[in-house]
């Protein structure tokens, strides 16, 4: 029996880039005969993200208050859990994650059975590589993660991720609100899940701005490091 895959697109003010992403998704097919459904989680955007999303075939969830990327993704995960999806894949609405790369995540999951598959920019060093400062930050989190989980994850801040049923069950209950990517890896690894990385090509964003800028970067590093430490200490 073919399984069901939910593509979760967390959005905050993405009206410029979202139509292209949704259009590309409609032309995408997944390996393994998986059926694909698309869910846009509109995190209380100030622009027309919701209207733009409703024009497509995608299901749309409008959050009544802004929860941040983690809260939005978790809403999608809850939807996946409640509607019996076998796999949920997070794909950003800003066009950084090309939908044609989805097949790589699913194929890798089918091949290795990993519970969480991360689409990584750095395994093959192709495509959009982000700025120097960001790569330094990402390298720092690589080491923190390695220290805490023993895993070799090179792109631990990547939001291009596949969650299988086991990961969905865990993330539905325990998923950080703010800057969730590196921290959630600690949570998943403590729960005994298999985490793996697969090389994907990413693009520069089509529209909108990054949520991490200027002094935010320092706050980001400190906050995420602390959160990772406490997730590491906390009993699962």
């Amino acid at each position: 029996m073919p399984g069901k895959v939910l593509i979760v697109i967390p959005c905050y003010n993405e009206e410029a880039s979202l139509p292209d992403v949704l259009c590309e998704l409609q032309q995408t097919t997944l390996p393994g005969g998986y059926q694909m459904e698309v869910l846009v989680v509109n995190d209380c955007s100030k622009d027309n993200t919701s209207a733009v999303a409703k024009k497509s075939q995608a299901a749309v969830i409008n959050l009544p208050v802004n929860l941040g990327i983690g809260g939005a993704v978790q809403t999608g995960i809850l939807y996946a859990r409640d509607n019996g999806f076998d796999i949920a894949i997070q794909l950003d609405g800003d066009g950084q994650h090309p939908p044609k790369e989805l097949a790589k995540l699913v194929a890798f999951h089918l091949e290795t059975g990993a519970n969480v598959v991360i689409g990584s920019r750095f395994l093959e060093k192709k495509g959009f590589q982000s700025s120097f400062a960001r790569r330094m930050g990402i390298r720092y989190f690589h080491w923190v993660n390695r220290l805490m989980t023993g895993l070799q994850i090179y792109d631990s801040t990547s939001g291009f991720r596949l969650f299988d049923r086991a990961a969905i069950e865990i993330a539905a209950v325990n998923y950080p609100d703010e800057y969730p990517e590196p921290e959630s890896l600690v949570v998943f690894s403590k729960a005994g899940l298999n985490i793996a990385e697969v090389a994907v090509l990413m693009s520069p964003r089509l529209g909108g701005t990054s949520s991490i800028r200027h002094f935010g970067s320092l706050y980001y590093c400190i906050k995420v490091s602390l959160a990772m430490l406490f997730s590491f200490i906390r009993k699962p």
Partner: peptide, 18 residues
């Protein structure tokens, strides 16, 4: 608590509209 409520409400709304 607020986060949980917002998530529940939005999920319910989606189901209701469908």
């Amino acid at each position: 608590d607020n986060k949980k409520l917002a998530q529940e409400i939005s999920l319910l709304k989606e189901r209701f509209e469908k």
